[in-house]
Design a protein around this nucleic acid. Structure first.
Lengths: 147, 147
DNA sequence: CGAATCGTAACATATAAAGTTACATGAAGC
DNA sequence: GCTTCATGTAACTTTATATGTTACGATTCG
């Protein structure tokens, strides 16, 4: 299965926007991400629906973060993207008649539900500001290594 | 991404084999799973390499569990299948130059690595015998409900 | 008005899981 | 030995889904 990298993408985009004064165009973001401006608009559009960013058209248009970096969590972004499935491993059949398969599903669900709960909990505690801070630290370190 | 359901499949197949005296053919297993005998052979072949099952050709041939149900864990089966990726969510780029993307990857890896460790730990504690027991319980309950 | 920019539908491509076909190989029984 | 039943496996097809691309309309700025 091809993995969904939209969460990674929007984080990347949002951090670039946070480091950047004024609006950034879909084209500029697409270059940062190594992708296509239409893909950027499509994905950022989902964040706009949640009021996390806004966009303007025309010259001097583009995208801007409207939410507080301290308030936006990975979990919110995951939700904004429509809560895509975390797991690449699943059942053969969702609601099987066969008792054997029911037992199998129950065992796998136990494990995956617990892992999902852990992920959601962690996601709820990581903010964009945390990532921005980590980026700044990496930036200082790279600069120090050069000197 | 289409989800990998082979773990679910082999569990289903192994439990049916455990409930069944003698060997089961790929055809019979394929019917239990609602799939194709070639798919069964392909997947069971991976378990054979780990010595969990064996197969015989010819009339009276088929598949048989050789391992102790108490000893075989979900983790072993996951390994036998080649340790397919657990997660349907991933990075855009594996080893990015961009510090922003590095910060993003680090944050996501933290969360996903922890979730993966949890899953592996749980998988190591669940045996085929546990699932067989759960199946037997469901079987009793369904019977009781009928009376 | 013209250029820049987003919005979005429609279509194309890429990747991976699962299914299918075909045929070779080996074992059992007559 | 011949036939039948079974696995072993390569090659191909189908399906699902994420991502990329093209095209064009709508909006805004100067």
């Amino acid at each position: 299965m091809k993995r969904d990298s939209r969460l990674s993408s929007v984080l990347h985009a949002l951090l670039h926007m946070a480091e950047h004064d004024g609006r950034m165009t879909s084209d500029a973001l697409a270059q940062c991400l190594g992708t296509n401006p239409v893909v950027v608009r499509r994905t950022m559009g989902l964040l706009r629906r949640q009021g996390l960013v806004d966009s303007d058209r025309g010259p001097s248009g583009g995208w801007r973060i409207t939410a507080d970096l301290d308030k936006v969590t990975l979990r919110q972004l995951h939700e904004a993207l429509g809560e895509p499935a975390f797991f690449a491993i699943g059942h053969r059949q969702e609601a099987p008649e066969c008792l054997v398969e029911q037992a199998v599903n129950a065992a796998l669900d136990d494990a995956f539900d617990e892992a999902e709960a852990l992920l959601l909990k962690r996601f709820a505690h990581v903010t964009l500001a945390d990532l921005a801070k980590d980026f700044a630290r990496r930036h200082r370190e790279r600069k120090a290594a050069k000197d």
